[in-house]
Write a protein that binds this DNA or RNA. Structure first.
Lengths: 348, 348
DNA sequence: GTGAAAGCGCTAACAA
DNA sequence: TTGTTAGCGCTTTCAC
């Protein structure tokens, strides 16, 4: 008789309905109920029906953890938090992580924070609670020290795209500074001096680094008065377009643009194309080698974001193997891909 | 003493190293080992160190299922299999699924099949094995009857984007036929008769439907001899570009194009832009309202792919609630978004 | 600070 | 076809 044990409701989880309950209700043994609900054969049709009916009536839901444990299987998952699934940059990254995860026979559980620190933290805690083996995160927090709590719990945390702040942890980032420098240098070499940088949120480490590289190159070239062509907060395409319009309306508008991310690159293209005919367009260099860059002849600072994902995953697996290793930061190279838009001379 | 129980290796899982083993090795109780490895406080520093060391030496890895079970938590996951994470169409869909999943407090585990039926099936079986509550799949199989085995196991399966074949199951698809028809009709109204359809793999149900709609409109308009402008297998951008080049090299090339998916639309744009100046370009209509369509002035058959994901997830959750419901197919509407490329008259 | 015992909800082996 | 008996590996009382 199991009935005596059933009145245990210390933890009022979503469901108290266990297999045992269903079995009693259907008047069969635990094992028979298990057979039915697990889809095993060798059950008399009417018995099956009876169990199925009671399960439905009681609202039975199998406890995956118990099932996995009893059958000796492992459910190894690695959690990933990105900003936004529809950003091709993150999508490619996720793809890289998935490849590596699959090789390690791990399941990838992906979620997006919408660049909101609170959401991110909720998701991160969720990953820990669900006992993910590792968490790979594109963090939107200005201070990542909270993550220490999770790390202490045994969760492996790897930061990707944006370096961890106020915490020691594995990370994979791009050489953003080189990217910013490369873009500026290239445009300078093509005769531009009024170069505008249209960047994302100022607090993003990636943006800070890109802008730093850009600034250095401009200063070293002896250009003065370029700061007034630097813009920030071009996070989405709509806002970026506004910003670009303002810049083009200046008395001495920029003859060249650097787009701090793929969103702002798209925005710059949009405005520039609708305002100037071919042959009179400002030069421009974008960030991230997205698929449409080719059609549009957009020169970009390119990098391998899929590889970035792979490396982050590999770092995570390495740490799972040996948690005592020292935190490692991998910096991935960037390169300039010429497609025409960055090689035009100044027109006005 | 637990030692007597340790020689149980019926199931040689990946790791035999349990907490108990670590505890023995470290000369502490099970509970103390648990405290350390779970990151709980109230453990003497040296005890902690000792446990940590032994855990490392033995290669201990916590069993997530056991941990979850003992603590009375539930880890409810819903699995999603898409073709390719970097296709913006799937990415938006995944986003929609994630939103719904989060509302239902479920974790999303995402993987991609690369449009390969074998990979897809491996992933699907994996989802069942990991005891996912539901599976939402963009299937690349020509026959989905195998999925019956999983359904019998109690897994809820929902097909999205492509209708299930040779099996009854919930599904959410677009009204692809209307899309094909709409595109053709629109171009016909603008005076085109030599309209080419550049489609994806012929076996894709979405392509069949789009082409069927296209065909109907062409036939009804009394156009003859349009079949020789229909192409298939334009699955990736490279192949699509080849196909478009061939079409443009015809003696009487098409004056308008319909791109069967976002890849082929990109390819058509690429070829058309590099061959003709503005004002002389063939008209064209793409499928899927991708982010770059705006800059390029691309008219498209648009739809809400995020909503498609949401609806698929909702269908899955509804079935989890009541598995006895009849299979339901939801068909989502499509619309034409005019941006210029589809409204040009024929030029040659 | 540490430990013993008692399960969590399920499945596996072996009977009947 | 059905049932009984043991656990799966961990966390949780509640003692010490």
């Amino acid at each position: 008789m199991w009935e005596s044990e059933i009145t245990d409701n210390r933890r009022m989880t979503h469901t108290n309905v266990t297999l045992a309950r269903v079995a009693i209700a259907a008047g069969v043994s635990l094992k028979t109920a298990s057979r039915v609900l697990a889809g095993e054969p060798h059950v008399a049709p009417q018995t099956r029906e009876r169990v199925l009916k009671e399960a439905r009536v009681l609202g039975y839901r199998r406890n995956a953890a118990a099932s996995l444990l009893a059958s000796g299987q492992q459910a190894d998952a690695i959690s990933v938090i990105i900003g936004d699934m529809t950003n091709p940059f993150y999508a490619a990254m996720a793809q890289g992580i998935e490849e590596s995860a699959r090789e390690h026979r791990m399941i990838l559980s992906l979620s997006s924070s919408g660049e909101d620190p609170d959401t991110e933290w909720e998701l991160a805690k969720g990953a820990a609670r669900q006992r993910s083996r590792a968490l790979i995160v594109v963090s939107s927090m200005e201070d990542n020290s909270q993550y220490l709590d999770l790390v202490r719990t045994g969760l492996t945390v790897v930061f990707v795209d944006r370096e961890p702040r106020a915490i020691q942890a594995d990370s994979v980032v791009l050489d953003n500074e080189a990217g910013g420098r490369l873009a500026a240098t290239h445009l300078l070499e093509h005769g531009h001096t009024r170069i505008s940088y249209v960047g994302d949120y100022e607090w993003l480490p990636t943006q800070q680094a890109r802008l730093a590289g850009f600034s250095d190159a401009m200063s070293e070239a002896g250009i003065s008065n370029w700061e007034h062509l630097v813009r920030k907060d071009a996070h989405d395409v709509a806002r970026a377009r506004e910003i670009v319009r303002e810049l083009l309306d200046l008395e001495a508008p920029p003859t060249a643009f650097v787009g701090g991310n793929n969103r702002s690159a798209l925005a710059i293209l949009h405005e520039v194309h609708s305002r100037y005919p071919v042959g009179r367009r400002p030069a421009m260099i974008g960030f991230d080698d997205v698929e449409w860059a080719g059609v549009l002849g957009l020169s970009v600072i390119s990098h391998d974001s899929r590889d970035m994902g792979r490396q982050a995953a590999d770092l995570a697996f390495a740490r799972i193997e040996d948690p005592s290793k020292e935190a490692k930061m991998i910096e991935l190279p960037v390169a300039l891909t010429e497609r025409g838009s960055g090689e035009r001379p100044p027109f006005s």
